[in-house]
Design a protein around this nucleic acid. Sequence first.
DNA 1: TCTGGGGTCCTAGGACCC
DNA 2: TCTGGGGTCCTAGGACCC
Length: 392
Amino acid sequence: VEPRIIFHLDMDAFFSAVEVTSNPGLAGKPVIVCGDPYRRSVVSTASYEARKFGLRSGMPVGQARKLCPDGVFVAGNPQKYVYTSIKILQVLKEFSPLVEPFSVDEAFLEFNNLDLGDAVGVAREIKARIKRDFNLTCSIGIGLNKYVAKMASGLEKPDGLTVIMPDEFLERFGEKQVGELWGVGEKTSAKLKSLGVYRVKDLAAFPEKTLTRVFGVYGSYLKMAANGLDNSPLVPYYQGVEPKSVGHEYTLVQDVADRRYLLSTLLRLAEQVGRRMRAGGYFCNTITVKIRFSDFKTITRQKKLATAFERDDIIYAVARNLFEVNCGAGKIRLIGVSASGLVKKAEAQGDAMFEDDRRHRIFVRVVDSIRDKFGDDSIKRGGSMRISLPTY
DNA sequence: TCTGGGGTCCTAGGACCC
DNA sequence: TCTGGGGTCCTAGGACCC
């Protein structure tokens, strides 16, 4: 019996590549997809041409412009990427029913009864189909578990195809820095360095007891990761995963001290959160407000209620109270509202707050449907009308 | 160069109860 | 009188990922 084989498929510079397909004149140019260029934003995706200039995801757009003055900076179109992503998933399902969408540009596939030699052929077919149908390239990593497949897909980007057998993991990654491992970020790298662990092979051989003492449950995960071990199951798309939270946050165009303006923004965020919950059929019992001050210090404050709710006015009332108690008097850079403790609508039945008035619900449904068609800004309630910023 | 937005999971401390 | 032990729930923050 052949063991299960896992593919990890990673679209190459996905957002930039999609922009090029809808505007072929951009082909071969440094294309940078970012947030609204008129607001404070960062690079979402830089094409490989742009990466030659040192551009990376997460880099502030100002810095990116300096490094790459001739770059084409495009405001992202999330809907377009989601649409393309779904189309690609449909193609992947033709190759295996066991597809786990991992993000908008990544997916895992599982194959059973597939010979390893044949796996490479299947991967080539997938790459050819995606090239033919979408004019996009991807990189595929193949291994016996998700972790190895994920690490493999990054080795030969772009347009890569990499197989890693269990006994090959340390050959391929042993000499690399621990920060190259999926799940090992800046802080963990630094902590590991202080333990004398620099390379993946050092971590692979490090005593697990020490790791567990320093990192808690994460310690044994680290040791396994460094050895290419992973027994996490693939979760097929049709099983889905229930979200744990729904939130929105917004970095203001400029830091703002005007409390009326901030509250109107908070209301908009509360309404967006409510709308997403209703669209998914969820109730929540906890609201979290996030505040980032001018100095980038960031706090979160949350409140759990005894009952589940989804009404905008309740979300806003809770958020507003948390905000007013914690906002201080200075300028604020970002505010966010998030709902957690989610339960499906059916499970929330019988809750006291569920018995609220029908008219309110109908009103909200109408507003939601208009916003679905025409965008969040098409309808506003009085309190969320923009109040013009004072001149700076 | 001035630092997005959407998430998940884990930890630690305090409140509270028995 | 000057100090327990166990357990659960809630809250805040940190780390990481795409």
